[in-house]
């Protein structure tokens, strides 16, 4: 059965150019110089049908795209109202901050430590001061939708509460945390960055229940914690009668992927330099890719001897791919198994 879907938005990496060399960058940004052209950007915007469509513009550092504002204007003219820029903040001047306010564009600034030493350990020397300056420009411009985003990593885990405490005293709307995706530069920096699923879960539980988090929420600040870092399955790969929202990732070369979690070009099923996004998502290549992923779910090696093989959604197939093969699991099986077991035992007792 083919699961119905709709394009809910697009995650577009408009440039691979970056002034920072963050050790966790899934994209290995700054290594190559690729940029989405204005013409190909229009092929993405063609997917906007005046209904639900959110456009996330990322990079590299998107503000380093020479036609950044031209792309923004195109999206605005097309009627895209929900635009989010993901930036390292170092390029945000007073003038740029005012323009973000004027055009009602949400801004997510990556800040990976609340102290200079930790942030700079991850993002490079001098980055902290420039990023904080950028955040201050946004606040001073009266920006109402500033998202501060930090990765949860080995090297910053001890200061996450302080992070919430300090940032909640500034006029930001959301403090967001994410987990490390083992792709790009993070592969070579696993020790400084990655934690086990169990450790991640413990940290998330601690953050959820802590009074500092609750106090920040009382002030009206949204604390956005990542969902469980394991999941039961990719919704598009399992039968459903409800339409599944898809936000494809488009990399700086124009390659289109199912979602942001997919990395290697071998998992791309189209290119916006050649076709409109809507045509790509309706193409035989996309259908073949989905079928290929669905077939792969049946051949994950570890699942054959697993007691939960009939009930498990097989987790995130993109994470499995990032671990080397679609026949691997996403690495979060143990946590899923515990959850399934507790649920079953509760049902039977």
């Amino acid at each position: 059965m083919k699961t119905p879907y709709y394009i809910a938005g697009a995650y577009v990496e408009i440039t691979s150019v970056c002034n920072l060399k963050c050790i966790h960058c899934y994209n290995d940004s700054g290594k190559e110089k690729n940029e989405i052209s204005v013409e190909s950007f229009q092929n993405i915007l063609a997917a906007h049908d005046n209904k639900e469509f959110s456009l996330t513009i990322s990079g590299g550092e998107p503000l380093l795209h020479p036609k950044f504002w031209e792309l923004i204007m195109l999206a605005k003219e097309k009627g895209v109202s929900d635009i989010l820029i993901i930036t390292n903040g170092t390029q945000i001047t007073e003038e740029i901050a005012k323009k973000f306010v004027e055009y009602d564009i949400s801004v997510q600034v990556s800040l990976n430590g609340i102290s200079e030493d930790i942030h700079d350990q991850i993002c490079g020397e001098g980055a902290f001061k420039k990023t904080i300056k950028g955040i201050e420009h946004l606040i001073n411009a009266g920006h109402k939708n500033i998202v501060i985003r930090s990765m949860i990593a080995q090297c910053n885990k001890s200061q996450l509460l302080e992070f919430i405490d300090v940032m909640s005293k500034k006029k930001v709307s959301t403090i967001s945390f994410g987990t490390i995706s083992v792709q790009g530069r993070s592969i070579n920096n696993k020790n400084a960055l990655c934690m086990s699923t169990e450790e991640n879960e413990k940290i998330l539980e601690m953050l959820k229940g802590h009074k500092i988090t609750k106090e920040a929420e009382k002030k009206g600040i949204k604390i956005d914690l990542p969902g469980a870092s394991y999941n039961s399955g990719c919704p598009i790969l399992h039968p459903s009668e409800e339409k599944v929202p898809i936000t494809p990732r488009i990399d700086s070369k124009g390659n289109v992927y199912l979602c942001q979690n997919f990395g290697g070009e071998e998992y791309s099923f189209g290119n916006i330099y050649n076709d409109k996004l809507t045509d790509i998502m309706d193409s035989p290549a996309f259908n073949s890719f989905i079928k290929f992923c669905q077939m792969s779910l049946c051949y994950m090696h570890d699942c054959a001897s697993c007691v939960w093989q009939n009930v498990c959604g097989r987790g995130c197939i993109a994470e499995a791919a990032n671990r080397g093969s679609l026949q691997f699991t996403d690495g979060h099986c143990e946590y899923r198994k515990k959850e399934y077991a507790n649920k079953l035992i509760n049902e039977q007792t």
Binding site: A304, S305, C306, V307, W308, Q309, K337, K338, A341, N342, I345
Partner: peptide
């Protein structure tokens, strides 16, 4: 049969 030990079960 695939099986799994979970706590005492």
């Amino acid at each position: 049969f695939p099986h799994q030990v979970h706590e005492d079960n």
